[in-house]
Design a protein around this nucleic acid. Structure first.
Length: 974
RNA sequence: GCGGAUGUGGUGGAAUGGUAGACACGCUAGCCUUAGGAGCUAGUGGGGGAAACCCCGUGAAGGUUCAAGUCCUUUCAUCCGCACCA
């Protein structure tokens, strides 16, 4: 038999596929239905391909091959995202041109990608540092500029002191540069910005039109951070100095319904500073605080454990109540969000509460708490919840209900008549239920609204509850006086704080407890109180009513805020796309005319960034000095370059028509390929590349330049592959797996199949060479089995096996088609691990000695042939080289990857006989085999007759029988 | 704190509300042999039992259901993202 030798067959077929352009997508005249799979193109670093790339690329490779075999015109392209700082740093260090370093790395990547047998259409390769490509990146920038979406502003931006470059908000993680970990500084620089904020709403809303993984949509929504609320003006009083104009402060809140609970105002140090600049004479203490706060970085501010702040002495007049409230300055309020000032509602906001406690400011509750889940048609009741604490032991008095009464723990509770005193009611319930008579009242809660469903009585209830707190004085008890229906339903128990927190889970009781012990503050919606004419209004209705009242008085309005900031688009570096703008002393900033694009990156000697915030390009005088396109006068080129996210913001469009010199892609190609059908990439790009490219695409759509409003119909993300030690792979930990070594040792088909088999595609998982060897064995078994079956006619028959040939063939065909269905559906659902499992089961079956011997017999010639062909076709997307070799061994001239994907025969999926599980009272007691088309009664009778089952049925009377066709029978007996 | 996810054997993981643990790794025993990191056979969730078989079991506590890993409520733990964002 031919040996399985991946080292020979893999390069052989890779070369053939390459030469024949087997995987090239047809152009936009093709009548077939199109399908566009996209994986994130790599940044060609010196390290080469990562096993994570292999996971992502193989998964979509399998899907692409599967779709191609089904007759789709599949586009599965690859390219390189070449601009970026690592290459520039490498170039500086080794004194070679970034262009040359990139070229070397790209060639290495291409070699690696090809060695994995990935079916990319290499004819459409795009490279972002190719002037023919970045010409269009610059062109799109100019369109943004003309539309007013690219603008220059002198702002304090995030600056990485190590890489000496400005950063976008999205590139700052925990106050550090996401790539190099250097703490970010603020630097005032004239910057180019892109107005992504203009698209904030649509970037959220249109997520409803695409199929993204939930966590991706959620993360984008979170990042954009839209919040709806109100801006409210507070008139200021007692401000010394000569500030001009109206003296008032505008706060932003998402909770206008809590406005009557605003007991003080807090302004950010930044806002306070602007007041000083406008003439406010702050006291020395206040001024010192402001200065200190502003000079503390945001990172340090966050690390500060307790809240700091200072009273300004200014009073603000509450716009609805007319009462004065003090104005404080504190650095927990940010200058960069909202209006830079807040109304503090310490009763209903945790941060304000902390601040109020520290500085002893008043806390006024204005919302009645609501617990539980509202039900339909509730019955109304009044009640109390009594929490009794034994101060000596720290234990709490609870009752544990018997299982039929719910089985859970709770505090003492009970109904209250309309006019009954709350404390007396609580004492009465404690006495009646537990017999404890000597207790001391401590405090009680506000009215709480609780909703629940009383299962025992089958009724929905809405109750008005007061929590009442007591301390136990002594152990003296009398006999409890229980209602007849309460007798024996519960037992009294004292629980420690820890036990209470573990066992008492019912929302109302838990809230009452948390309020008492942990001082939990209520931040949810609920009916208003102490809010004048608005008392009783709830949630949105309360918010709308209060906003209307504010609008009427001219002191407020509904307002929407976002966390998303405009995209800082300038980088003070060499290795990026030059921004195609010329600065003329007469005309100002002038766009480079489109016919002069691309503005090519000049070749230079030195790439070092400067300390001045100026790009190294500024030193290349014969490039910088140019003529103004408008007045032909002396002008200077813009020396900032674009961020590395620019080229990747539209690359998927270039693949559609990769070599078009007239346009970034022709209208016809854009129309044909329309949208990426499935895009896979890393979670780390969710709020960077993915958001940026959606923004660019929407802009192009608005300009009528692309036919769809979203670039990607679906977005998925592969889970991270961890090192064998379960830690994230890193050079410093020495746990990096190099795909080259795996390919060298086991072959491309093995690493491909292993990565698919590791676990669910989108979950993180650790590399394991032991598990890999299992996959390697499987591939070896497939090879041996297939070769055996192919060579069968020339093999001596070892043993004749008796039995019905027809039944045997049916069994083989049935499992084959069941496997085919499973593999087919699992590929579509990206459940690659279970698809591989199904293939393993199938091969295990074919490999059982009797099956295998029988397949080798002369009379099995036909079934043997169709079986081996089916097997080869099914594994083709997963292990393309193995499949190709076997396919040719079967005598085929054409590639298996151009063969048609077989359709499963629905008739063969059905079994004649099915096994039925038999349960008695839900417990498995036996199983029978019946005809698949047996009637319910037949199944029932056969099940009841099964001896193992009959034994259990004899214990009582059958009161109910559930039959699930083809699955199980459940007898309910009592 | 907010948002998202995940908790199942010794390990990676399977299970449209319907026989929990497929498939694979590892382990145990045996076979075979051109001695290998090879192949084959059997076994492998826990407990009891000679066996038939019985009991328990999907982080925890409840609930719904004839039936719950799966649905609901609460809770604990871990991971990820955001974060004094009002």
């Amino acid at each position: 038999m031919k040996r399985y030798d991946p080292k020979t067959i893999e390069p052989k077929w890779q070369a053939v596929w390459d030469e024949t352009k087997l995987y090239a997508a047809a152009d936009d005249n093709d009548p077939r239905e199109k399908y566009y799979y996209l994986v994130e193109f790599p940044y060609p670093s010196g390290e080469g391909l990562h096993v994570g790339h292999v996971l992502s690329y193989t998964a979509l490779d399998i899907m692409a091959r599967h779709k191609r075999m089904q007759g789709y015109n599949v586009l599965y392209p690859m390219g390189f995202d070449e601009f970026g700082l690592p290459t520039e740093n490498y170039a500086i260090k080794h004194k070679i041109a970034p262009q040359a370093a990139t070229e070397t790395n790209v060639q290495n990547y291409i070699r690696q990608l090809k060695s994995l047998g990935l079916s990319f259409d290499w004819d459409r390769m795009v490279r972002t540092s190719d002037p023919d490509y970045y010409k269009w990146t610059q062109w799109i920038f100019l369109q943004l500029y003309k539309a007013g979406l690219a603008y220059q502003d002198e702002i304090a931006i995030n600056w990485c002191p190590l890489e000496k470059t400005g950063l976008a908000n999205e590139e700052v993680v925990d106050g550090k540069h996401e790539r190099c970990g250097t703490p970010v500084e603020k630097k005032l620089l004239k910057q180019w910005l892109l107005k992504i904020t203009a698209y904030a709403d649509r970037l959220i809303e249109d997520l409803g039109t695409v199929d993204y993984l939930d966590r991706i949509s959620a993360q984008q929504i979170n990042w954009i951070g839209k919040s709806e609320g109100a801006e409210i003006e507070f008139r200021l009083d007692g401000m010394s100095g000569d500030m001009s104009g109206d003296r008032s402060v505008t706060v932003y809140t998402t909770r206008p319904d809590t406005v009557f609970g605003a007991t003080f105002i807090v302004v950010s140090p930044e806002l306070a500073k602007s007041w000083i600049e406008a003439g406010w004479k702050a006291s020395a203490e206040v001024a010192a605080y402001i200065t200190k706060a502003i000079n503390t970085s945001e990172l340090e501010r966050q690390e500060e454990k307790t809240k700091t702040g200072v009273d300004t002495g200014i009073q603000a007049i509450h716009p609805l109540s007319g009462k004065p409230v003090p104005v404080w300055v504190a650095d927990y309020v940010l200058g960069s969000y909202g209006t830079g000032a807040i109304m503090a509602v310490p009763a209903h906001d945790a941060r304000d509460n902390e601040f109020a406690r520290k500085f002893e400011l008043p806390v006024v509750p204005v919302i009645e708490p609501v617990t539980g889940t509202p039900q339909e048609d509730p019955e109304f009741r009044r009640s109390i919840v009594a929490v009794v604490r034994n101060p000596k032991t720290g234990e709490f008095l609870t009752v544990k209900w018997v299982p039929s009464g719910g089985g859970h723990y709770g505090f003492i509770g009970g109904g209250r008549d309309g006019d009954e005193d709350i404390i007396e009611c609580a004492k009465r319930e404690i006495l009646e239920e537990t017999g404890y008579k000597n207790i001391e009242y401590k405090s009680q809660t506000l009215r709480i609204h609780h909703h629940y469903y009383a299962h025992s009585k089958k009724v929905a209830r809405q109750i008005e509850v007061f929590g009442v707190y007591f301390d136990l004085i002594d152990d003296e008890r009398v006999e409890p006086k229980l209602e007849p229906d309460e007798v024996g339903q519960f037992e009294v128990q004292w629980l420690s704080q820890d036990e209470v927190e573990h066992h008492i889970t019912e929302p109302l009781h838990r809230y009452v407890y948390d309020l008492y012990v942990h001082g939990r503050i209520y931040t949810g919606d609920g009916p208003l109180l102490q809010s004048g004419e608005f008392d009783g209004l709830n949630g949105d209705r309360a918010r709308h009513a209060i906003i209307s009242a504010l609008v009427k008085k001219g002191v407020g309005r509904g307002a929407t805020k976002y966390k998303l900031r405009d995209w800082v688009f300038s980088r003070q570096h060499y290795w990026g796309e030059p921004i195609p703008i010329v600065h003329c002393s007469k005309c100002g900033a002038v766009p480079v005319p489109e016919d002069q694009l691309p503005v090519e990156l000049p070749k230079v000697e030195h790439y070092e960034p400067t300390d001045t915030g100026e790009s190294p390009l500024a030193a290349i005088t014969d490039w910088v000095n140019t003529a103004c396109p408008q007045c032909d006068g002396k002008a200077l080129r813009e020396t900032d370059t674009m961020p590395n996210w620019a080229g990747s913001s539209w690359y998927y469009l270039r693949y559609m028509d990769a070599h078009n010199p007239q346009a970034f892609a022709s209208a016809k190609s854009l129309e044909y390929w329309a949208q990426v059908d499935l895009y896979n990439g890393g979670m780390e790009h969710t709020t960077l590349h993915l958001l940026y490219s959606r923004f660019w695409h929407k802009f192009l759509f608005d300009q009528g330049l692309v036919p769809t409003s979203e670039p990607y119909a679906a977005r998925r993300s592969h889970g991270m592959i961890l090192g064998p030690d379960g830690a994230k792979m890193s050079k410093s930990k020495g746990n990096v797996i190099n795909p080259d070594h795996v390919v060298e040792k086991y072959g491309a088909d093995t690493i491909r199949l292993y990565e698919m088999f590791m676990g669910p595609f989108d979950e993180q998982k650790a590399w394991s060479e032991e598990h890999l060897s299992g996959v390697s064995r499987f591939i070896y078994r497939v090879w041996t089995l297939a070769q055996d079956l192919i060579e069968a006619p020339s093999q001596p028959i070892i043993a004749e096996v008796d039995g019905d040939q027809g039944a045997f063939e049916l069994e083989v065909d049935r499992l084959g088609h069941k496997t085919l269905k499973k593999v087919h559906e699992d590929i579509g659902a990206m459940h690659f691990n279970t698809a591989v499992s199904a293939l393993m089961e199938y091969v295990n079956f074919l490999n059982t000695p009797t099956t295998r011997a029988r397949l080798l017999q002369a009379e099995s010639t036909q079934v043997r042939e169709r079986t081996v062909r089916l097997l080869v076709l099914m594994v083709a997307p997963f292990t393309p080289h193995l499949a190709e070799e076997l396919w040719r061994d079967l005598g085929e001239e054409a590639s298996v990857h151009a063969a048609a994907w077989p359709a499963y025969d629905p008739e063969l999926i059905k079994d004649d006989l099915v096994e039925i599980a038999i349960q008695v009272n839900g417990k498995l007691r036996g199983a029978i085999v019946v005809a698949a088309d047996a009637t319910e009664d037949e199944v029932k009778d056969a099940a009841a007759a099964e001896p193992k089952v009959a034994k259990w049925l004899a214990e009582g009377k059958i009161v109910k029988t559930i039959v699930v066709p083809r699955r199980l029978v459940n007898f309910v007996v009592n």
